[in-house]
Amino acid sequence: MNYETLDISGDAGIRASGGSLREAFEAAATGMYSLITDPDGVQEYRTIEVAARGESLEGLLVSFLNELVFHFDAYGFIGKRVDIKQMEMENTGRGSLKADVYGEQFDPVRHSRGLLIKAATYHGLVVEKKDGLWSLDVIFDI
C-alpha cells in the first residue's frame, strides 16, 4: 500500500498517495490501521460497510477516517483492506463515499498493540494532486 508514517511531535500521521483520489483515500485508511496494529497480523474474516460525508474534500477524508476510528473504538473492528465502492464530489465542494472494509475483531492477545487513535484531525491536513498523483497528509490525535 502507498503510505508512510509521518513523525509529529507527540502524535502520529500518515502520508498516503494514489493515482486516483479513491486509491489515496484507501491508502490513508490502511495506513491508519497500520498505526493501531501490524497489518500482517490482521485477517479478512469480516466485512463492514461504512459511509461518510463531508463539506469539503478535506472534511470527507477526516470524516471517513473518523468513521473507521469509531468502528474500531466502539466495536473493536480492525480493517486490513479498504474498498471505496462509491465516491461523489458535488460542485459545491461537498462529498460523500461508501466503502467496504475487510478485516476482523481486534484481539489484544493475538494482535500487536500500537497506538490508540482518538481521532483524525484537520491539523496539518493536506489533500493535493501533483503530477497526476494524489497525496494526502493526515495527523491523528493519540
Binding site: 493501531i36 494482535h111 498493540r113
Partner: peptide, 13 residues
C-alpha cells in the same frame, strides 16, 4: 493485580 483489575491498552474494554 492492578494491571488485571484496571483494563488498559489499545482495544481494551
Amino acid at each position: 493485580v492492578l494491571y488485571n483489575e484496571v483494563p488498559s491498552g489499545v482495544g481494551s474494554k
